[in-house]
Design a binder for these strands. Structure first.
Lengths: 305, 305
DNA sequence: TATTCCGATAGTGAC
DNA sequence: GTCACTATCGGAATGAG
């Protein structure tokens, strides 16, 4: 989960001067940072920046939302508010800012790609995801933004895995690119006269959804690659929270009133349940370290697909 | 618990050539090592060496005992056989050798002083202590040797703590020794004309007994100082095995047939029970590390008594 | 279901 | 009730002018 870092000296300003809908930040549609410090070159992330501005989705009364916000300010549960209110302070973390959302890199990524989409609406950002996504307009907006985030994630995944991908290499060779270097983009290919191999569908390796019981107070949607290979994935719960029904795909919202995934007992059992490889289904009981080693092997095979 | 060390290249000889009662070792009454590498100087340990030889206590049939011995040879449970059969190989560990016993320093001492007394009789050394000490002659022999070991232990404790002991300092000053250096001996004092302060009773700080369920196969009697201060005391069981009725004083043998200390359930509970400071009775629940820190403080007070 | 630190608990293998 | 190694499990604190 992302947390603000490297801003020890800065104290969050009182809510009266820093509300996002009356923000003191720069224009909200600005791309704050390119992900890889590659200057002006073509880049999967930068290509998708600067979408059309839209009106903020909520104009809920400031006083009420701010009061709730105040409760979690300055404690770990409320750390995400810093990105929501001051995205410009985190150029290394923030990938995209709109009037309604902030897209960041998770500070403790649990997979090769792990982004968080944060809504900026005070009327929504402290709601439980099950509640917030009962609002159709809000859900639609978040889905739209999550789709953008997922494309960014897929493009970045392509950049990272492209040189290893068998299906992409076939495509690259058909295009006369040769073996070296990653394929920076796998989108379209319509300029070619001959039918090209489709190339790897990196988007299919990206999953978008929430945790059934988030610990961070502010609503966040995970945009994460499937591999679950990360140094920061250190506990059974880390793994199970993404590989069991504890992870609720954004596509599944709004949840039915009787959806079993609302039940705390069910979800606690999901977090505690025995470990299973997401890719091959092999069971690892409580042997997390062994699963980790196995995931390294699976990663090698997965990235070559 | 002591184990042979530094003899990786040496394979235990077949029992037929190395039986202690038909030993190939040097004369069994020889003092193998002085404890502190102090050359020929007067020393608490060396003073008590070289007791009168006695006849070995057992002449049990070799074949039977050797068969049993063979079972635990070469595995960790049988490691003590090396000291019994080849005490001369461990000059740094062995303090005293007689026809009937070997006295060694525990390789993993659980207190400032921690010795083991090992009987050499194959008819006894694989028996459970409760069984072995039902033999009055064997018990008498072991008590006699344990008393020697306890005196050695007390003398060594005096050497280590003497300079910190308030009661000993009073005595030393009455004898005109001044403050510096440890008192090498606190025994008698009868040469003086004036009544001297008694000096600290170090023997009272030494406890002698067995574990109710030993893990090492060969019978061993612990001779250990009360402090339980040691880097090698690392587990709850280490501590409880010496500070609960799991520790059976040699003086309590032979145990009555209905002695509760024979009961496995009782003893397992002793090993698992909550931690209590042996000196002040303070309770530490399962907080072993906290107990360890507390024992450091108790040690400072205890050594100054 | 935030992380991090510390420490208790559990299983194994060892000649 | 042997040790030593690895790992799992469990609680507590957590920022900061």
């Amino acid at each position: 989960m992302a947390e603000p870092v490297g801003d020890k000296g800065e104290v969050p300003q009182p809510e009266s001067t820093s509300h996002p809908t009356t923000s003191d930040a720069k224009p909200t549609t600005e791309a704050v940072a390119s992900p890889s410090n590659t200057p002006a070159k073509r880049n999967a992330f930068t290509e998708l920046m600067a979408p059309k501005p839209k009106a903020p989705i909520s104009q809920a009364p400031q006083s009420m939302a701010s009061k709730a916000s105040q409760i979690v300010r300055g404690v770990w549960r409320g750390a995400l508010i810093e990105y929501i209110e001051h995205p410009e302070r985190f150029p290394d973390k923030v990938l995209r800012v709109t009037a309604n959302t902030v897209l960041i890199k998770d500070a403790f990524p649990k997979a090769t790609i792990h982004l968080l989409l944060l809504p900026r609406s005070p009327a929504h950002y402290l709601l439980h995801p099950h509640t917030a996504f009962a609002d159709p307009a809000f859900l639609a907006m978040m889905r739209e933004e999550a789709a953008v985030g997922a494309r960014l994630a897929a493009a970045e995944l392509a950049r990272r895995l492209g040189s290893f991908s068998a299906s992409n290499r076939a495509r690259d060779e058909a295009m006369g690119k040769g073996k070296g270097g990653g394929a920076a983009s796998d989108r379209d290919g319509s300029e070619s006269e001959l039918p090209l191999p489709a190339g790897r569908d990196y988007a299919a390796e990206i999953r978008v959804g929430t945790h059934a019981h988030p610990s961070m107070a502010h609503l966040h949607v995970h945009i994460i690659s499937r591999d679950m290979r990360s140094e920061r994935a250190r506990h059974r719960k880390h793994y199970n929270s993404f590989t069991t029904p504890f992870f609720v795909p954004l596509a599944d919202y709004p949840l039915g009133e009787d959806d079993v995934r609302r039940e705390t007992g069910f979800q606690n059992a999901n977090l505690k349940r025995e470990l299973v490889c997401w890719r091959c289904g092999k069971e690892f009981g409580n042997r997390f370290a062994e699963l980790k080693r196995h995931l390294e092997e699976e990663f090698e095979a997965w990235k070559k697909e």
